[in-house]
Amino acid sequence: MDQLDVLWSEREIRIVLQRYCRGLDRLDAELLKSAYHEDAHDDRGVIRGNAHAFVDQILPILRQAYTGTLHTLHGSTIEIDGDTAGVETYCTAYHYLERDGVKRVEQYAGRYVDRFERRDGAWKIARRLVLNEWNLVQEVPLDPAEAQAGFNPSLRDRTDASYQVLPLNGPDAPTL
């Protein structure tokens, strides 16, 4: 494997990681599933099994329980060996909810420990283990409508402005 292939593979893997987060936050099953091979396994401790089944299970929960989510990626360590790669990525997830008249933000910090495989030229997650470092739940004293007044809204579906510049399919689609 030459250096250019290593660099390109790292780029492709990072795109998949970003697509995963975007799919979660936009509640986009097709986009989220595109980060995984069809036979991929996802293990979060509380949910384990086929990754595509995980997507079908988690999106209704996120849609129903939270007003908004934001999944962020931090540093990734990527080690490539031919058509397989070991990847560890630090991540933080923020979930906003209102329950019983109390507004809260749940924050989760952890790591994705992934086995990526390149099949038919495409890097995707084959196995994922999610490790939890810590959680934090905080009450939000501000009314979110007041705090967000004047800002452009973020939408949790394909009507979000990002879909105007980042189509999933077609000639201008990002690399899948």
Rank of each mutant, 00 (worst) to 15 (best):
G68H: 10
F116Y: 12
G86F: 08
R19G: 12
Y108P: 00
R99P: 00
L62P: 03
K33D: 09
E30K: 13
E98V: 13
D120A: 09
G121Y: 00
R119H: 03
T72H: 03
G68R: 03
Y94W: 01
I78P: 13
R44M: 12
I15N: 13
R63C: 04
E30C: 08
G101E: 10
A65H: 07
A93L: 02
V102W: 08
I47V: 14
I47M: 08
D28Y: 08
R111G: 08
L17D: 09
E30P: 13
W123R: 03
R104A: 07
H52E: 03
V16W: 04
G86D: 15
L31R: 14
G121T: 08
A122K: 02
R44L: 10
H71N: 11
L70T: 03
F54Q: 07
S34K: 09
E79P: 04
R48K: 10
A65S: 09
T84P: 05
D43M: 02
V113Q: 13
E30F: 09
G45P: 12
S34V: 01
L62D: 10
I58Y: 10
G121M: 01
D114H: 12
G101S: 08
Y36T: 01
Y36M: 13
D120K: 03
R119D: 07
A51W: 02
A29E: 14
Y94C: 00
L32W: 10
